[in-house]
Design a protein around this nucleic acid. Sequence first.
DNA 1: TTTTTATACGCTATTTTATGCCAAAAAATG
DNA 2: CATTTTTTGGCATAAAATAGCGTATAAAAA
Lengths: 154, 154
Amino acid sequence: MELDRYDYQILKCLQQDGRLSNQDLADRIGLSPSPCLRRVRALEEAGVITAYHALVDAKKLGYTLMALVHIAMDKHTDERFKTFEAQIRELPEVIECLLITGQSADYQLKVIVKDLDAYQELLLKRINHISGVTSVHTSFVLRRVVDSRAVPIT
Amino acid sequence: MELDRYDYQILKCLQQDGRLSNQDLADRIGLSPSPCLRRVRALEEAGVITAYHALVDAKKLGYTLMALVHIAMDKHTDERFKTFEAQIRELPEVIECLLITGQSADYQLKVIVKDLDAYQELLLKRINHISGVTSVHTSFVLRRVVDSRAVPIT
DNA sequence: TTTTTATACGCTATTTTATGCCAAAAAATG
DNA sequence: CATTTTTTGGCATAAAATAGCGTATAAAAA
């Protein structure tokens, strides 16, 4: 799919405010509502826009603790990875799971929990029980300096 | 702010689909449109809902590489942190910057770039130039197994 | 227990928005 | 330069958002 200046403007605007009305969006990018809406639909159709989400303040719901968990596996087989990932997907506290390169870890998880007790519980009763997990290292998040998922659009 | 069952349902729905119309939302949670809208506004007002975003597929825009960058500082002074963070905020490729506890790193950055060349450029010409940065370790993201920011809502 | 008060609901009317259709303009092509 | 293709803008209609108002319900006070 070919993207032009209008499309980039649309993406920029909707990345910032996913609930912009089509009319406001049209105004901002300098197009009338009909072609603007057509373009948004096309971007959704093409998978350039993948979803719309409301961001919820985790702390306001009691999730006061965020941690990064680095995990190393014993063997690097498809089987190990598959079962690990399947189990991880069952844990709602794991809001991110990345397979990464690097010395000491295979996966990095990002988890949010209500307190240290809950964290301990998650670690000892869930994550440690997954077969193949050999080492686990935790970093707690003290502050979120930048927290965006916005793709740079010039 | 006190949240009841309706509020949790609203949050759950809007986390999944940030563009749900108020009418559809009202239907799903079993309330008529007016009180539903009032609740959504109240949640926004109270900062429980912090923003709405469209998710854009980075790969479709040419950002094929994601990396985690672990950074250690020479001194742990307010001054060092302040200048580092200010400089980091100027880099649109840095979509996340976390101040973390742990052995070897003070910050973890998440960056997206178009290719290895761009990554090299970012690292050598931007990040390494920030005063106080003493060590930098990179992990590339091979796969995103889980990628949500949804707060668990029972 | 009864009365009062406050909160939140649902209905309705009005304004705003989304969306499909068609003619006109712009861009691309030969 | 003419023709074809694409995309726009305007308009009409349907849908949705939003504010006002009366009423029910639950909590608080008597």
